[in-house]
């Protein structure tokens, strides 16, 4: 690639007390890239994602996103959070707000955008995730898959340059996984830069440009889906692929 990376991580460490969860991560992500992070639980892949929007504070190293240095400055942190959307395993919709209010909240409060413009955009986004008829409904009335699609719309309403997905389908009943993956694949087709922590190997294989296999807080192996799934090099990755079969 000739472009500059939109995300640069250099020697990123993260510890909780004596427990080191990330042991020196170097990663560059280019605009439009879709990266799947795989690995067994506890390998540090979710932590890596959460460091990118400062939900976790890194212990050592450098993170630069879209030219902004992610340091302790709260101005920088908020600037980055506006550009980086996140979708959580547990959806985390605001239960006291309707679906539409959920989507409209951040653009109005954070970007101070005009309410009627935001509403128009929110309805377009809800249409995009197939939930325009649920705009006035409260999240509790929705299935898990529907809630997650609203959560995606809510993140997109900030017009982010990067989307982070932290196990977006892990809390869903199997029959609801696909509707969420479909929306994610649509984003892939639109050229969104995405980092996806997932156990859905089909998504990692079919939809991503690059797959990162993490183990014990380091990037053990990285490559194209074909390289990772069909020509794994390290023994750890080979074992992992067998274990999830």
């Amino acid at each position: 690639m000739i472009q500059n990376p939109i995300i640069t991580m250099e020697n990123v460490h993260k510890s909780y007390g004596d427990l080191e969860v990330l042991k020196g991560i170097d990663l560059q992500v280019y605009p439009g890239e879709v990266i799947s992070l795989i690995g067994s639980s506890g390998s540090g892949k979710s932590t890596l994602l959460r460091c990118l929007n400062h939900l976790e504070k890194i212990s050592k190293g450098t993170i630069i996103i879209d030219g902004i240095h992610l340091d302790e400055s709260s101005r920088h942190i908020n600037q980055i959070r506006r550009e980086v959307g996140m979708v959580f395993q547990q959806f985390n919709l605001f239960p006291h707000m309707t679906v539409l209010q959920n989507v409209m909240e951040a653009p109005i409060r954070v970007l101070k955008r005009d309410r009627s413009d935001v509403k128009k955009q929110a309805l377009t986004l809800l249409k995009k995730v197939g939930l325009q008829d649920k705009a006035e409904v409260y999240p509790k009335k929705l299935s898990g898959g529907q809630q997650q699609r609203v959560a995606i719309a809510r993140a997109l309403a900030m017009n982010p340059k990067i989307m982070l997905f932290d196990e977006p389908t892990s809390a869903l009943d199997p029959e609801l996984v696909n509707e969420v993956l479909l929306v994610m694949k649509e984003l892939v087709a639109e050229g969104m830069t995405m980092l996806v922590v997932t156990h859905e190997m089909s998504f990692a294989r079919d939809a991503s440009d690059r797959v990162i296999y993490m183990s014990n807080g380091i990037i053990e192996e990285t490559g194209s889906p074909d390289e990772i799934f069909h020509h794994p090099k390290s023994q750890k990755l080979k074992n992992f692929l067998v274990s999830i079969k």
Partner: peptide, 23 residues
Amino acid sequence: IPKGQMEAALSLGMDYPTIMRRI
């Protein structure tokens, strides 16, 4: 209130006073 509420609001770029008041 589950921790995820705070995290979701933070990830949307909301500041602490707004998160308290609105979420």
